[in-house]
């Protein structure tokens, strides 16, 4: 339990205080009060991260944490888009009028714009950080990225298989067998795992690489574009849900998008001054 709670602290906090915190828990003993204290401490450390050390290292950690937070927020926001889309329009809910449809479909171009910024940021980081590290033999950077890469291939193959089955046996589709339903469920579980590993892998690799601020400056600027897209996406989805009738699934999707956008905005507001600094 204690190890799990300690693992809930942000990486920068764990790097600096993790060993001391674990030693103090050993000395004072554990119990429900200590569990609660660590849980609230971890939440506080995420909400208001602390960066100590020499000024240059603090700036580096700030920018690195900003990139990681924006990436995780983006993954959450992207996940919310199809959820809200399906919940409001497939089949259309009674309140899904023209305005709601426009709002929901208007999310997709925003998603593409944000995705382009995210992809640009990731490519620059891969070019400036990942490739040089791999050339110098740092294979440990690949390890956190591998699960998402493998799952991406498996899920793509699975989706292609389902699509082929649908095309080959259209009459069977409305009454699928239990085995087929189980396969689809397994695909969905894999998709959720892909989301989780996809969100967590790149930040872990970035943390291991410890890139200099100069290498992260352009990705951080592009990440600000991701944050703007995320904010627009959250506004569109929340408005669509408010206008279209607040079903539980659509509301949850919109709430996730809003939370992701707020998190990304807070992080970006703190990161941009660090990027500007010479």
């Amino acid at each position: 339990m204690i190890r799990l709670l300690l693992a809930c602290y942000p990486p920068s906090f764990r790097d600096r205080y993790g060993a001391e915190l674990a030693a103090l828990v050993e000395d004072t003993g554990a119990g429900p009060r200590v569990w609660w204290d660590l849980a609230t401490g971890a939440a506080g450390a995420w909400l208001r991260p602390v960066f100590v050390g020499a000024p240059a290292e603090r700036t580096r950690r700030r920018v690195q944490a900003g990139l990681a937070a924006t990436w995780v927020a983006w993954c959450l926001g992207v996940l919310a888009v199809p959820v809200v889309d399906r919940a409001l329009l497939d089949p259309p809910v009674p309140g899904a009028n023209g305005a709601v449809r426009t709002l929901v479909t208007g999310v997709w171009p925003v998603l593409v714009l944000g995705g382009a910024c995210a992809a640009g940021s990731a490519l620059v980081l891969a070019w400036r950080v990942l490739l040089p590290a791999l050339r110098s033999g740092r294979r440990d950077l690949l390890r956190p990225l591998l699960p998402a890469a493998v799952l991406l291939v498996v899920e793509a193959l699975g989706a292609a298989g389902v699509w082929q089955l649908r095309r080959a046996y259209p009459s069977v589709w409305p009454h699928p067998s239990a085995a087929f339903v189980a396969l689809v469920l397994a695909w969905l579980v894999g998709f959720a795992a892909l989301g989780a590993f996809g969100a967590a892998g790149p930040p872990v690799a970035l943390r291991r690489a410890r890139p200099p601020v100069a290498a992260m400056r352009l990705p951080a600027v592009l990440a600000a574009g991701v944050t703007l897209a995320l904010a627009a996406l959250a506004v569109l989805e929340a408005t669509a849900v408010v206008l279209g009738g607040r079903g539980p699934v659509a509301s949850t999707g919109a709430a996730v998008a809003v939370l992701a956008a707020v998190g990304a905005l807070l992080s970006t507001v703190r990161t941009i001054p660090a990027v500007r600094r010479p």
Binding site: Y17, L24, D37, G41, A45, V52
Partner: peptide
Amino acid sequence: GPGTLYGALSR
């Protein structure tokens, strides 16, 4: 508590 101590100490 340990979380409180190190939260405050870090700040």
